[in-house]
Design a protein around this nucleic acid. Structure first.
Lengths: 256, 256
DNA sequence: AAGTGGTCTAGACCACCAT
DNA sequence: TGGTGGTCTAGACCACTTA
C-alpha cells in the first residue's frame, strides 16, 4: 500500500508515459473503489497522503484536483477532503436536467409503479457490459413536479450488483436513488452518458403522463457510470416538455 | 498594462476575495477581448507573461490552466500557447451534438434557405440582452447528414455585432459559422447554453425535413455565449431524430 | 491552538518542437 | 541549439474550522 513511486516511467507501459500525479490519482481511485474511505468519510490530510505515496504536496494536490473536478471528492478548507455523497443537491445539479420553462428548478416526487425481475436483452446487455440473459431488475417510476406527472422512468439494473434489493427497500429510501446505490450497495454513480430524441406518446405513456396519445415526448436514454466508466444502470426517461425543458449545462462550474 | 498586482486583496471589493491567479486570468481575458492576441496567434511565453504580471510561473500557469479548461486557449508543448480557433473539430466536439443512432459522427452540409433583416421581439431581446425592436439578422439553414436533411436551424443575430454581414458573405464562408464570427467579426463563441424539448413538425418543417406533419422533432434552443457569458447568437434547431440523437457528453475531456 | 486546505513562490529538470 | 510548455519539489504564509 505504501509502495514507492518513481516519477515519469513509473506507470510507463502499453499505456505510455504517465505523469506521477496520474499514478497517485490511480492509487487514490483504487482505494476509493476498495472502500478504504466510504461515502462521506474524510480522506487523510494532504500532508499524510503525500507522505504515504512519497510525493510532494504539490503533486498530491494535482491528483486530488482531478478527483475534485470529476466530483468524486470534495474539499473543504479547514476541514478536510471528503468522499462526495449523493444527495438532493448533487442530483439536481448533475443528474436531473429537467427545469421549468420559466427557469425554475424543482425537486421531483417519485412514485414507483412497477418493480420486476427479468433477463437482459441484447441491447441492454451490451450497454451494461453483461451477458445476454443475465438477470436484471426493471423498475418503473413516475416523477411529478408541482404535483403533476412529468417524467416516466424505466430503470434497468444488473441484478448482480444489487444483491438484496427489493421493492420495499427501493421505495423505503429516504434520499435519492443514487444515494441508495451508494450507501447500501457501494455503487458510486459518478457521471452519466445521455442520448436524447423526440418520440410520440403511446397509449401507456399518454395515460400515465396525462397527455394525448401521439403527443410529443422527450426521450432520454441514460447510462449511469461509476469508476473507470463502468456502467451500472440504464434509464429511459419520457418527458412531457409542455411546461418543462432539458437543460444541457446545469452542472457547469463557474470560474472567475 | 504592466501594473503591479498584490496578492490576496488585489481584486478585493464588492466581489470579495480573489486569488492572484484569478486576477491574472482576468487581465489575460481582457487582453483577449481587446484583440491583443487574435484567433490562432501565440501568446507570449509563460516566462514572459509571468514577468509582465509580476507573478511566479506557477501562478501564471494556474491562470492559463483555467483558460485551457474553458477552451479559450490551447497549449502545445514545445511550441507555445495559442488562442483557440474555431474549426470543424471544435464544432463537432463542443457545439454540434447530433450523432447517428449507431454512434457515428458526421460533419453536416449546410444549405442557407433564407437571410433576412428584422427587429428583435421581446423574448429574443431578453435572451440577447438588447432592446426590443433592435435590428437583427434572421438566417434559416437546412443541415444534411449523408445527403439527407436532418436539422432545420433558425439563427438570430444582433445586427450591431455583425456590421457588414450579408447573405453572400455568410454563404461564401469556407469554414464553420463560428469561424466566420471569430475571424471576420472578432466574436469568439466560447460555449452555449441549450434547452431541449419535443415538438410536432408543422407543415413548414415537415416539408423541409421530409417527414410527415405531426412527426416528433427534437427542438434545441441555444444561446451562444462569448467572454463573460455575453450572448451573441440565438439558434433554434429542429432535429429529425429518426436516425440521429442528441449526445449530452461529446466534449467531455478524458482524464486518467 | 492545532490542523486543514488554499495560495504563492523559486527553482530544477524533463519532453517536445523549430531551426 | 535554444525556447517552449509539463512535471516535480520544498517551503512559506494565509484563511478557515474545530475544539
Amino acid at each position: 500500500m505504501n509502495q514507492p513511486i518513481e516519477p515519469g516511467f513509473a506507470a510507463a507501459g502499453a499505456a505510455g508515459f504517465q505523469p506521477l500525479y496520474r499514478e497517485v490519482k490511480r492509487l487514490l481511485t483504487q482505494s476509493l473503489i476498495e472502500g478504504e474511505w466510504p461515502a462521506g468519510a474524510a480522506l487523510p490530510s494532504e500532508t499524510r497522503l503525500a507522505q504515504r505515496y512519497k510525493v510532494s504536496i504539490g503533486t498530491l494536490r494535482k491528483a486530488i484536483d482531478e478527483l475534485v473536478a470529476e466530483r468524486i471528492v470534495t474539499r473543504h478548507q479547514g476541514r478536510g477532503t471528503f468522499v462526495a455523497t449523493h444527495n438532493a443537491n448533487r442530483l439536481m445539479f448533475h443528474f436531473f436536467h429537467i427545469v421549468g420553462r420559466d427557469g425554475n428548478m424543482e425537486y421531483p416526487t417519485t412514485r414507483t409503479l412497477a418493480f420486476r425481475r427479468g433477463k437482459a436483452g441484447a441491447g441492454e446487455a451490451g450497454r451494461l457490459s453483461i451477458a445476454v440473459g443475465e438477470p436484471v431488475l426493471r423498475i418503473r417510476n413516475l416523477l411529478s413536479l408541482s404535483g403533476r406527472p412529468v417524467i416516466l422512468d424505466d430503470i434497468v439494473l444488473p441484478q448482480a450488483l444489487f444483491g438484496d434489493l427489493t421493492e420495499k427497500i427501493f421505495t423505503a429510501r429516504d434520499n435519492t436513488i443514487y444515494h441508495l446505490y451508494q450507501t447500501r450497495y457501494g455503487i458510486n454513480v459518478l457521471r452519466s452518458s445521455e442520448r436524447l430524441s423526440a418520440v410520440l406518446a403511446d397509449a401507456d405513456a399518454a395515460k400515465l403522463l396525462q397527455v394525448k396519445k401521439g403527443a410529443p415526448l422527450l426521450a432520454i436514454n441514460r447510462t449511469a457510470l461509476t469508476y473507470r466508466d463502468t456502467p451500472v444502470e440504464l434509464r429511459l426517461s419520457l418527458v412531457n416538455t409542455a411546461a418543462h425543458e432539458y437543460a444541457s449545462d446545469l452542472g457547469r462550474e463557474d470560474r472567475g
